[in-house]
Design a protein around this nucleic acid. Structure first.
Length: 287
DNA sequence: CCCGGCGCCTGAGGGC
DNA sequence: TGCCCTCAGGCGCCGG
């Protein structure tokens, strides 16, 4: 379930490792995850190099030396594991319990670099994808599938307000999960942002005042920035090979705290289903 | 256009 | 011990 903060953490780590690495060969074993085709992606990647690692919402992109873009989406359970030519593994993504080392039964892509390092893509549930597109296609996707980046000046309150007003009959949680409204919010940070803004996730967007939507706008930024600072959220006792784990989990205010008391008013946090997702909120101080 | 719901996948965990 | 059910949720797609 990597959301913006987890993907941003992976992006930062990979941007220290990948640039200027020449791709020697690639291996794919799940054709349906590779677009437009295994053969095309192999042809483009082999002999190419990665010049930059970027992120758009929850999607990673790699700018290639020939100008093409490689898009990688981790969806729910994707991991990118870097194996240096010598040294320890570096893991980014959702921890998979009980699996250590690579390759393993969930490894669907292997990229071998000419210096001997390898990049593995593991994805237990096979929802993720690798896709090669041109610069123009990338721009089209970036514009048509994604709203503003919440941690940049592109995220502006008046636009956010307008989009909320346009979705007046939807629960507000569904609105902020919409990647075209704001890019990168997923289930955890949606609940966290709504708690911070004191808004009930199931509240109809059209019934929320401008002032409260402003609080939500600010809360989304604050929650995501804070989570980036903590290197995202990791469950269980997962650590990457640098011994670092995302520590936002211990700073979270509401997600997964059902049955525990609200950190603001003390009432018991409830868990329900809103917008088709597990949803956590305080019945007293979120209206 | 808008919106809810389903399918894609696999594994964990609970009930019996 | 094992079967069956639900849940986990990003996102494309479909149908009302």
């Amino acid at each position: 379930m990597p959301e913006l903060p987890e993907v941003e953490t992976i992006r930062k780590d990979l941007s220290k490792l990948l640039p200027h690495q020449k791709i020697k060969r690639v291996f794919f074993n799940k054709p349906k995850m590779i677009h437009p085709s295994v053969n095309y992606v192999k042809k483009i990647l082999t002999g190419n190099a990665i010049t930059k690692v970027g992120r758009r919402g929850k999607m990673l992109y790699f700018i290639l030396a020939d100008g093409n873009y490689l898009l990688v989406h981790l969806k729910m359970t994707g991991q990118l594991v870097w194996q240096p030519s010598r040294g320890r593994l570096v893991v980014g993504g959702h921890p998979i319990t009980g699996v250590s080392g690579v390759p393993n039964k969930f490894t669907h892509v292997v990229v071998e670099f000419s210096g001997g390092a390898k990049l593995f893509f593991n994805d237990m549930r096979q929802f993720g994808y690798w896709k090669v597109v041109s610069f123009n296609e990338f721009n089209n996707i970036s514009k048509s599938n994604f709203g503003p980046e919440p941690l940049t000046k592109d995220f502006m309150f008046n636009d956010f307000l307008e989009k909320c007003r346009a979705r007046k009959r939807s629960p507000i949680k569904a609105v902020i999960l919409d990647q075209k409204v704001v890019a990168g919010v997923g289930n955890i940070y949606a609940d966290e942002s709504l708690w911070m803004a004191k808004i009930k996730p199931g509240q109809t967007a059209g019934k929320i005042s401008k002032a409260k939507l402003y609080l939500l706008f600010k809360a989304i930024i604050k929650v995501l920035a804070e989570a980036v600072k903590y290197r995202g959220t990791t469950f269980n006792s997962y650590v990457d090979s640098f011994g670092r784990e995302g520590t936002y989990w211990s700073h979270r205010r509401v997600y997964g705290r059902n049955g525990l008391s609200c950190k603001r008013c003390g009432k018991i946090i409830l868990k329900t289903k809103t917008a088709g997702r597990g949803t956590h909120y305080c019945p007293k101080c979120q209206k």
